[in-house]
Design a protein around this nucleic acid. Structure first.
Lengths: 196, 196
DNA sequence: CGTTCAGTTGACTAAGGTCAATTCCCGTGG
DNA sequence: CCACGGGAATTGACCTTAGTCAACTGAACG
Protein backbone atom coordinates (compact mmCIF):
# COMPACT_ATOMS: atom_id res chain seq x y z
CA UNK A 1 0.00 0.00 0.00
CA UNK A 2 1.58 3.22 -1.12
CA UNK A 3 2.04 5.90 1.45
CA UNK A 4 0.49 9.16 0.21
CA UNK A 5 3.05 11.15 2.17
CA UNK A 6 5.61 10.22 -0.45
CA UNK A 7 3.50 11.29 -3.42
CA UNK A 8 5.10 14.73 -3.85
CA UNK A 9 8.44 13.02 -4.30
CA UNK A 10 7.03 10.63 -6.86
CA UNK A 11 5.63 13.57 -8.79
CA UNK A 12 8.93 15.40 -8.67
CA UNK A 13 10.78 12.38 -9.98
CA UNK A 14 8.18 12.02 -12.70
CA UNK A 15 9.22 15.39 -14.03
CA UNK A 16 12.48 13.71 -15.00
CA UNK A 17 11.47 10.18 -16.01
CA UNK A 18 8.36 8.16 -16.70
CA UNK A 19 7.95 6.10 -13.58
CA UNK A 20 5.75 3.02 -13.41
CA UNK A 21 4.62 1.37 -10.19
CA UNK A 22 7.32 -1.28 -10.33
CA UNK A 23 10.04 1.34 -10.60
CA UNK A 24 8.56 3.30 -7.76
CA UNK A 25 8.35 0.27 -5.53
CA UNK A 26 12.07 -0.19 -5.88
CA UNK A 27 12.66 3.09 -4.14
CA UNK A 28 9.74 3.39 -1.77
CA UNK A 29 11.00 1.00 0.93
CA UNK A 30 14.04 3.23 1.36
CA UNK A 31 12.02 6.35 2.08
CA UNK A 32 11.42 7.91 5.45
CA UNK A 33 9.87 11.12 6.59
CA UNK A 34 12.04 13.42 8.63
CA UNK A 35 11.51 16.65 10.49
CA UNK A 36 14.29 19.08 11.14
CA UNK A 37 13.88 21.97 13.54
CA UNK A 38 15.14 25.40 12.55
CA UNK A 39 18.92 25.76 12.79
CA UNK A 40 19.64 22.03 12.86
CA UNK A 41 21.93 20.41 10.31
CA UNK A 42 20.78 18.06 7.59
CA UNK A 43 24.38 17.42 6.52
CA UNK A 44 27.36 18.36 8.64
CA UNK A 45 30.82 19.07 7.30
CA UNK A 46 33.02 15.99 7.51
CA UNK A 47 30.19 13.50 7.39
CA UNK A 48 30.63 10.69 4.87
CA UNK A 49 27.40 8.74 5.14
CA UNK A 50 25.17 10.66 2.76
CA UNK A 51 21.45 11.19 2.76
CA UNK A 52 19.40 12.76 0.04
CA UNK A 53 16.34 14.77 1.00
CA UNK A 54 13.30 16.04 -0.79
CA UNK A 55 11.99 19.21 0.81
CA UNK A 56 8.27 19.16 1.54
CA UNK A 57 8.26 22.27 3.64
CA UNK A 58 10.64 24.97 4.73
CA UNK A 59 13.91 26.11 3.31
CA UNK A 60 17.57 25.41 3.85
CA UNK A 61 20.95 26.81 2.96
CA UNK A 62 24.31 25.21 2.48
CA UNK A 63 27.61 26.79 3.32
CA UNK A 64 31.33 26.18 3.20
CA UNK A 65 33.51 27.20 6.11
CA UNK A 66 36.74 29.07 5.51
CA UNK A 67 38.86 30.78 8.16
CA UNK A 68 35.99 30.21 10.55
CA UNK A 69 33.63 32.12 8.27
CA UNK A 70 30.53 30.62 6.74
CA UNK A 71 30.08 31.21 3.03
CA UNK A 72 26.54 30.43 2.01
CA UNK A 73 26.50 29.34 -1.60
CA UNK A 74 23.12 27.75 -2.14
CA UNK A 75 19.50 27.77 -0.98
CA UNK A 76 16.92 25.01 -1.08
CA UNK A 77 13.16 25.49 -1.25
CA UNK A 78 10.20 23.14 -0.97
CA UNK A 79 9.74 20.81 -3.91
CA UNK A 80 13.46 20.42 -4.52
CA UNK A 81 16.16 17.91 -3.69
CA UNK A 82 18.66 18.57 -0.96
CA UNK A 83 22.00 16.85 -0.68
CA UNK A 84 25.72 17.25 -0.48
CA UNK A 85 25.73 15.87 -3.97
CA UNK A 86 29.42 16.14 -4.58
CA UNK A 87 30.22 14.30 -1.40
CA UNK A 88 27.64 11.64 -2.18
CA UNK A 89 28.86 10.82 -5.67
CA UNK A 90 32.52 10.89 -4.73
CA UNK A 91 31.89 9.11 -1.43
CA UNK A 92 34.15 11.52 0.40
CA UNK A 93 33.45 13.58 3.53
CA UNK A 94 31.20 16.54 2.88
CA UNK A 95 32.96 19.88 2.71
CA UNK A 96 29.73 21.70 3.23
CA UNK A 97 27.05 21.93 5.86
CA UNK A 98 23.35 22.07 5.09
CA UNK A 99 21.28 23.88 7.66
CA UNK A 100 17.55 24.24 8.09
CA UNK A 101 16.68 27.94 7.97
CA UNK A 102 13.15 27.20 9.13
CA UNK A 103 11.48 24.13 10.57
CA UNK A 104 11.62 21.63 7.74
CA UNK A 105 9.80 18.51 6.71
CA UNK A 106 11.53 16.18 4.26
CA UNK A 107 11.41 12.80 2.64
CA UNK A 108 14.85 11.25 2.94
CA UNK A 109 16.72 8.20 1.73
CA UNK A 110 20.31 7.07 1.67
CA UNK A 111 22.18 7.88 -1.48
CA UNK A 112 23.57 4.35 -1.39
CA UNK A 113 20.07 3.00 -1.86
CA UNK A 114 19.69 5.03 -5.02
CA UNK A 115 23.09 3.85 -6.19
CA UNK A 116 21.93 0.26 -5.79
CA UNK A 117 19.00 1.05 -8.06
CA UNK A 118 21.43 2.38 -10.66
CA UNK A 119 22.81 -1.15 -10.88
CA UNK A 120 19.54 -2.98 -11.26
CA UNK A 121 17.39 -0.53 -13.19
CA UNK A 122 18.06 1.32 -16.41
CA UNK A 123 15.21 3.66 -15.57
CA UNK A 124 16.79 4.75 -12.31
CA UNK A 125 20.16 5.05 -13.95
CA UNK A 126 18.54 7.43 -16.38
CA UNK A 127 17.11 9.39 -13.49
CA UNK A 128 20.64 9.65 -12.13
CA UNK A 129 21.88 10.96 -15.44
CA UNK A 130 19.14 13.53 -15.78
CA UNK A 131 19.60 14.80 -12.24
CA UNK A 132 23.33 15.19 -12.81
CA UNK A 133 22.70 16.99 -16.09
CA UNK A 134 20.16 19.26 -14.44
CA UNK A 135 22.67 20.10 -11.76
CA UNK A 136 25.42 20.75 -14.29
CA UNK A 137 23.21 23.17 -16.20
CA UNK A 138 22.53 25.15 -13.06
CA UNK A 139 26.17 25.22 -12.07
CA UNK A 140 27.33 26.30 -15.51
CA UNK A 141 24.89 29.19 -15.57
CA UNK A 142 25.89 30.25 -12.10
CA UNK A 143 29.57 30.10 -13.04
CA UNK A 144 29.10 32.13 -16.19
CA UNK A 145 27.29 34.74 -14.12
CA UNK A 146 30.18 34.93 -11.70
CA UNK A 147 32.72 35.27 -14.50
CA UNK A 148 30.90 37.70 -16.73
CA UNK A 149 28.68 39.85 -14.54
CA UNK A 150 29.45 42.43 -11.87
CA UNK A 151 28.03 41.94 -8.38
CA UNK A 152 25.44 44.58 -9.18
CA UNK A 153 24.36 42.77 -12.32
CA UNK A 154 24.21 39.50 -10.44
CA UNK A 155 21.95 41.11 -7.86
CA UNK A 156 19.67 42.47 -10.56
CA UNK A 157 19.56 38.97 -11.98
CA UNK A 158 18.03 37.71 -8.76
CA UNK A 159 15.22 40.20 -8.96
CA UNK A 160 13.46 38.62 -11.88
CA UNK A 161 12.65 35.16 -13.08
CA UNK A 162 12.55 32.08 -10.96
CA UNK A 163 15.10 33.34 -8.49
CA UNK A 164 12.84 35.89 -6.82
CA UNK A 165 12.29 33.47 -3.97
CA UNK A 166 15.84 34.13 -2.87
CA UNK A 167 15.23 37.85 -2.53
CA UNK A 168 11.86 37.42 -0.91
CA UNK A 169 12.64 34.81 1.65
CA UNK A 170 16.34 34.87 2.40
CA UNK A 171 17.98 37.30 4.85
CA UNK A 172 20.17 39.75 3.05
CA UNK A 173 23.46 38.75 4.63
CA UNK A 174 23.04 35.26 3.22
CA UNK A 175 22.13 36.62 -0.20
CA UNK A 176 25.32 38.68 -0.25
CA UNK A 177 27.32 35.57 0.39
CA UNK A 178 25.52 33.82 -2.45
CA UNK A 179 26.53 36.70 -4.71
CA UNK A 180 30.13 36.49 -3.58
CA UNK A 181 30.25 39.83 -1.76
CA UNK A 182 29.94 41.15 1.79
CA UNK A 183 26.66 42.23 3.41
CA UNK A 184 27.94 45.81 3.49
CA UNK A 185 28.56 45.84 -0.23
CA UNK A 186 25.16 44.45 -1.02
CA UNK A 187 23.57 47.16 1.10
CA UNK A 188 25.46 49.80 -0.87
CA UNK A 189 24.51 48.26 -4.19
CA UNK A 190 20.88 48.44 -3.15
CA UNK A 191 21.26 52.06 -2.09
CA UNK A 192 22.93 52.87 -5.41
CA UNK A 193 20.11 51.27 -7.36
CA UNK A 194 17.44 53.11 -5.40
CA UNK A 195 18.88 56.46 -6.42
CA UNK A 196 17.93 55.76 -10.03
CA UNK B 1 37.62 -4.82 -37.76
CA UNK B 2 38.26 -2.15 -35.18
CA UNK B 3 40.04 0.96 -36.26
CA UNK B 4 43.07 1.56 -34.03
CA UNK B 5 42.72 5.31 -34.53
CA UNK B 6 39.77 5.21 -32.16
CA UNK B 7 41.56 3.30 -29.42
CA UNK B 8 42.44 6.36 -27.32
CA UNK B 9 38.77 7.19 -27.10
CA UNK B 10 37.90 3.66 -26.08
CA UNK B 11 40.51 3.85 -23.35
CA UNK B 12 39.20 7.16 -22.13
CA UNK B 13 35.66 5.84 -21.94
CA UNK B 14 36.96 2.80 -20.10
CA UNK B 15 38.10 5.06 -17.30
CA UNK B 16 34.39 5.64 -16.62
CA UNK B 17 32.75 2.31 -17.39
CA UNK B 18 33.69 -1.27 -18.14
CA UNK B 19 33.22 -1.54 -21.86
CA UNK B 20 32.97 -4.85 -23.70
CA UNK B 21 33.30 -5.26 -27.44
CA UNK B 22 29.55 -5.31 -28.00
CA UNK B 23 29.12 -2.00 -26.21
CA UNK B 24 31.95 -0.46 -28.15
CA UNK B 25 30.55 -1.60 -31.45
CA UNK B 26 27.39 0.32 -30.73
CA UNK B 27 29.33 3.54 -30.79
CA UNK B 28 32.11 2.90 -33.24
CA UNK B 29 30.09 3.29 -36.47
CA UNK B 30 29.28 6.85 -35.39
CA UNK B 31 32.90 7.87 -35.04
CA UNK B 32 34.90 9.93 -37.46
CA UNK B 33 38.29 11.48 -37.36
CA UNK B 34 38.44 15.20 -37.85
CA UNK B 35 41.20 17.74 -38.20
CA UNK B 36 40.76 21.35 -37.32
CA UNK B 37 43.29 24.00 -38.27
CA UNK B 38 44.35 26.58 -35.75
CA UNK B 39 41.76 29.31 -35.19
CA UNK B 40 38.86 27.39 -36.71
CA UNK B 41 35.69 26.73 -34.77
CA UNK B 42 34.61 23.33 -33.52
CA UNK B 43 31.31 24.76 -32.26
CA UNK B 44 29.99 28.15 -33.24
CA UNK B 45 27.61 30.25 -31.20
CA UNK B 46 24.04 29.75 -32.33
CA UNK B 47 24.57 26.30 -33.75
CA UNK B 48 22.04 23.69 -32.63
CA UNK B 49 23.28 20.48 -34.23
CA UNK B 50 25.79 19.30 -31.66
CA UNK B 51 28.94 17.28 -32.04
CA UNK B 52 31.05 15.83 -29.27
CA UNK B 53 34.77 15.57 -29.78
CA UNK B 54 37.59 13.72 -28.13
CA UNK B 55 40.86 15.59 -28.43
CA UNK B 56 43.74 13.52 -29.71
CA UNK B 57 46.09 16.40 -30.25
CA UNK B 58 46.18 20.13 -29.72
CA UNK B 59 44.17 22.34 -27.42
CA UNK B 60 41.08 24.44 -27.58
CA UNK B 61 39.25 27.13 -25.66
CA UNK B 62 35.63 28.02 -25.36
CA UNK B 63 34.28 31.49 -24.91
CA UNK B 64 31.08 33.43 -24.47
CA UNK B 65 30.56 36.70 -26.27
CA UNK B 66 29.21 39.71 -24.39
CA UNK B 67 29.15 43.29 -25.67
CA UNK B 68 31.33 42.11 -28.53
CA UNK B 69 33.94 40.87 -26.08
CA UNK B 70 35.07 37.28 -25.87
CA UNK B 71 35.18 35.81 -22.39
CA UNK B 72 37.19 32.62 -22.37
CA UNK B 73 35.95 30.36 -19.61
CA UNK B 74 37.40 26.94 -20.36
CA UNK B 75 40.32 25.15 -21.97
CA UNK B 76 40.50 21.69 -23.48
CA UNK B 77 43.61 19.53 -23.73
CA UNK B 78 44.40 16.26 -25.46
CA UNK B 79 42.79 13.21 -23.92
CA UNK B 80 39.62 15.07 -22.93
CA UNK B 81 36.14 15.52 -24.29
CA UNK B 82 35.11 18.69 -26.04
CA UNK B 83 31.55 19.83 -26.48
CA UNK B 84 29.03 22.53 -25.88
CA UNK B 85 27.57 20.17 -23.35
CA UNK B 86 24.85 22.43 -22.10
CA UNK B 87 23.62 23.10 -25.58
CA UNK B 88 23.74 19.42 -26.44
CA UNK B 89 21.74 18.17 -23.49
CA UNK B 90 19.17 20.95 -23.68
CA UNK B 91 19.07 20.80 -27.47
CA UNK B 92 19.18 24.57 -27.73
CA UNK B 93 21.53 26.79 -29.73
CA UNK B 94 24.99 26.98 -28.28
CA UNK B 95 25.76 30.19 -26.42
CA UNK B 96 29.44 29.53 -26.65
CA UNK B 97 32.04 29.08 -29.33
CA UNK B 98 34.79 26.49 -29.18
CA UNK B 99 37.93 27.44 -31.05
CA UNK B 100 41.06 25.46 -31.88
CA UNK B 101 44.04 27.25 -30.34
CA UNK B 102 46.42 25.03 -32.26
CA UNK B 103 45.97 22.61 -35.10
CA UNK B 104 43.80 19.87 -33.63
CA UNK B 105 43.04 16.25 -34.32
CA UNK B 106 39.85 14.81 -32.86
CA UNK B 107 37.53 11.88 -32.87
CA UNK B 108 34.01 13.20 -33.25
CA UNK B 109 30.46 11.90 -33.17
CA UNK B 110 27.01 13.43 -33.01
CA UNK B 111 25.60 13.80 -29.55
CA UNK B 112 22.33 12.45 -30.91
CA UNK B 113 24.04 9.16 -31.65
CA UNK B 114 25.09 8.89 -28.03
CA UNK B 115 21.58 9.79 -26.92
CA UNK B 116 20.25 6.92 -29.00
CA UNK B 117 22.59 4.59 -27.13
CA UNK B 118 21.18 5.89 -23.85
CA UNK B 119 17.86 4.39 -24.92
CA UNK B 120 19.11 0.98 -25.91
CA UNK B 121 21.96 0.37 -23.51
CA UNK B 122 22.10 0.61 -19.76
CA UNK B 123 25.89 0.67 -19.97
CA UNK B 124 25.91 3.76 -22.14
CA UNK B 125 23.28 5.39 -20.00
CA UNK B 126 25.64 4.87 -17.09
CA UNK B 127 28.41 6.48 -19.05
CA UNK B 128 26.15 9.45 -19.59
CA UNK B 129 25.49 9.67 -15.88
CA UNK B 130 29.14 9.44 -14.93
CA UNK B 131 30.16 12.07 -17.46
CA UNK B 132 27.51 14.44 -16.17
CA UNK B 133 28.59 13.81 -12.59
CA UNK B 134 32.21 14.36 -13.51
CA UNK B 135 31.29 17.62 -15.13
CA UNK B 136 29.21 18.72 -12.14
CA UNK B 137 32.10 18.07 -9.79
CA UNK B 138 34.39 20.25 -11.85
CA UNK B 139 31.85 23.04 -12.10
CA UNK B 140 31.11 23.00 -8.39
CA UNK B 141 34.78 23.29 -7.51
CA UNK B 142 35.25 26.08 -9.99
CA UNK B 143 32.25 27.92 -8.61
CA UNK B 144 33.37 27.60 -5.02
CA UNK B 145 36.73 29.01 -6.04
CA UNK B 146 35.06 32.00 -7.65
CA UNK B 147 32.90 32.65 -4.60
CA UNK B 148 35.46 32.12 -1.87
CA UNK B 149 38.84 33.05 -3.29
CA UNK B 150 40.34 36.33 -4.43
CA UNK B 151 41.67 36.60 -7.99
CA UNK B 152 45.18 36.33 -6.57
CA UNK B 153 44.32 33.13 -4.72
CA UNK B 154 42.66 31.71 -7.80
CA UNK B 155 45.81 32.42 -9.78
CA UNK B 156 47.96 30.69 -7.18
CA UNK B 157 45.60 27.77 -7.42
CA UNK B 158 46.46 27.34 -11.08
CA UNK B 159 50.14 27.08 -10.29
CA UNK B 160 49.98 23.71 -8.64
CA UNK B 161 48.18 20.46 -9.19
CA UNK B 162 46.69 19.30 -12.41
CA UNK B 163 45.94 22.79 -13.65
CA UNK B 164 49.56 23.71 -14.42
CA UNK B 165 48.91 22.97 -18.07
CA UNK B 166 46.82 26.13 -18.20
CA UNK B 167 49.69 28.30 -17.02
CA UNK B 168 52.23 26.56 -19.18
CA UNK B 169 50.38 26.43 -22.44
CA UNK B 170 47.76 29.16 -22.49
CA UNK B 171 48.48 32.81 -23.39
CA UNK B 172 48.08 35.03 -20.38
CA UNK B 173 45.23 37.13 -21.68
CA UNK B 174 43.09 34.01 -21.95
CA UNK B 175 44.09 32.87 -18.48
CA UNK B 176 42.98 36.20 -17.04
CA UNK B 177 39.59 35.74 -18.62
CA UNK B 178 39.38 32.25 -17.11
CA UNK B 179 40.08 33.80 -13.71
CA UNK B 180 37.42 36.43 -14.21
CA UNK B 181 39.75 39.43 -14.40
CA UNK B 182 41.40 41.61 -17.07
CA UNK B 183 44.82 40.90 -18.59
CA UNK B 184 46.14 44.06 -16.94
CA UNK B 185 45.09 42.90 -13.51
CA UNK B 186 46.65 39.50 -13.96
CA UNK B 187 49.90 41.13 -14.97
CA UNK B 188 49.82 43.21 -11.78
CA UNK B 189 49.04 40.21 -9.62
CA UNK B 190 52.03 38.44 -11.07
CA UNK B 191 54.23 41.47 -10.43
CA UNK B 192 52.95 41.67 -6.86
CA UNK B 193 53.75 38.02 -6.25
CA UNK B 194 57.24 38.32 -7.65
CA UNK B 195 58.10 40.99 -5.10
CA UNK B 196 57.78 38.38 -2.33
C1' DC C 1 64.18 46.06 -40.32
C1' DG C 2 59.34 47.35 -39.54
C1' DT C 3 54.70 45.49 -38.20
C1' DT C 4 51.95 43.32 -34.96
C1' DC C 5 50.31 41.77 -30.81
C1' DA C 6 51.07 40.18 -26.03
C1' DG C 7 52.58 41.75 -21.80
C1' DT C 8 54.03 45.36 -18.67
C1' DT C 9 53.78 49.77 -16.41
C1' DG C 10 51.87 54.35 -15.03
C1' DA C 11 48.10 57.50 -13.75
C1' DC C 12 43.64 57.72 -12.54
C1' DT C 13 38.86 56.02 -11.42
C1' DA C 14 35.53 53.06 -9.53
C1' DA C 15 34.03 49.61 -6.58
C1' DG C 16 34.35 46.30 -3.04
C1' DG C 17 36.51 45.18 1.75
C1' DT C 18 37.07 46.47 6.56
C1' DC C 19 36.00 48.54 10.91
C1' DA C 20 33.04 51.09 13.58
C1' DA C 21 28.97 53.72 14.76
C1' DT C 22 24.15 54.15 14.16
C1' DT C 23 19.49 52.97 13.03
C1' DC C 24 15.85 49.81 12.38
C1' DC C 25 13.12 45.91 13.41
C1' DC C 26 11.22 42.52 16.21
C1' DG C 27 10.44 39.73 19.99
C1' DT C 28 10.49 39.35 24.96
C1' DG C 29 9.79 40.48 29.57
C1' DG C 30 8.72 43.86 33.00
C1' DC D 1 1.73 48.93 26.80
C1' DC D 2 6.20 50.23 26.94
C1' DA D 3 11.17 49.46 27.60
C1' DC D 4 14.92 46.89 26.57
C1' DG D 5 18.09 43.69 24.12
C1' DG D 6 19.96 41.65 20.07
C1' DG D 7 20.71 40.91 15.49
C1' DA D 8 20.22 42.79 10.79
C1' DA D 9 20.83 46.47 7.84
C1' DT D 10 22.54 50.91 6.81
C1' DT D 11 25.91 54.54 6.70
C1' DG D 12 30.49 56.83 7.11
C1' DA D 13 35.58 56.91 6.80
C1' DC D 14 39.31 54.82 5.00
C1' DC D 15 42.04 51.24 2.48
C1' DT D 16 42.94 47.98 -1.06
C1' DT D 17 42.43 46.23 -5.40
C1' DA D 18 40.49 45.71 -9.89
C1' DG D 19 39.02 48.43 -14.16
C1' DT D 20 40.21 51.72 -17.76
C1' DC D 21 43.00 54.19 -20.94
C1' DA D 22 47.23 54.99 -22.74
C1' DA D 23 52.16 54.62 -23.40
C1' DC D 24 55.93 51.64 -23.73
C1' DT D 25 58.66 47.27 -24.20
C1' DG D 26 59.75 43.06 -26.19
C1' DA D 27 59.46 39.06 -28.89
C1' DA D 28 57.80 36.75 -33.23
C1' DC D 29 57.25 36.97 -38.05
C1' DG D 30 57.40 38.25 -42.32
Amino acid sequence: MPDPVFLPLRNAISRFIKLNDADWQLLEPSLREKKLPKQSHFITEGKVEQEVGFLLDGNMRHYYTRDGEEKTTYFYFEGHFVSSYLSAITNTPSELTIEAMTDCRLIVFHYKDLQKLYDVSHTWERFGRLIAEYLAIGLEQRMVGLLMLSPEERYLDLLDGNKQKIIERIPQHYVSSYLGITPVSLSRIRARLLKK
